[in-house]
């Protein structure tokens, strides 16, 4: 282990990439991610929305947070916490996403197009929104 003090560590200067270029790329990606869903094609929406989010996040983490030149274990640490979240998702999703458990049901999960509201006023509001006609076919998409 090195006995280096903080000063000498700080001296290894960060190589600064061209931040303006990265910033412009990020903005272009943002525009694409907003325009993509306007085509109203589900797969393109998902790709542009989440695919681009991953790319943007990668650019920020690599170039702004400098994870590429930080010690390797920092990247591992971040990856570990993400993997644990995936693990949590994998363990919990089979139960939470099932509309009826073994001994109880979540009846309102199965009804589509119904606004589940705390008070009736809001229910009325939700129902006259433009979502009603879409609600039905989205539900079909998700059912398989």
């Amino acid at each position: 282990m090195s006995d280096a003090t903080a000063e000498s560590v700080a001296e290894e200067h960060v190589h600064h990439p061209n931040y303006t270029r990265i910033y412009v790329i990020l903005l272009v990606l943002l525009v694409i991610s907003v325009l993509g869903p306007m085509l109203e094609i589900r797969i393109i929406t998902l790709l542009t929305a989440f695919g681009i989010a991953v790319v943007k996040a990668y650019l920020v983490v690599k170039n702004f947070m400098h994870i590429d030149i930080a010690k390797r274990y920092i990247a591992y640490l971040g990856a570990t916490s993400l993997v644990f979240m995936l693990l949590f998702f994998a363990g919990a999703a089979p139960d939470v996403m099932k509309p009826d458990g073994s001994n109880w049901e979540k009846p309102l999960w199965q009804q589509t197009g119904v606004d589940i509201t705390a008070n009736p006023e809001h229910a009325a509001h939700g129902e006259d929104g433009h979502g009603d006609e879409h609600g039905e076919d989205h539900a079909e998409d998700g059912s398989h």
């Binding site: 363990g91 919990a92 139960d95 939470v96 458990g101 979540k106 009846p107 309102l108 589940i116």
Partner: peptide
């Protein structure tokens, strides 16, 4: 709250 679209099992997982 399952009556309003939530899930008590989620709490147990969390």
């Amino acid at each position: 709250n399952p009556e309003r679209g939530g899930d008590p099992i989620l709490w147990q997982h969390l």
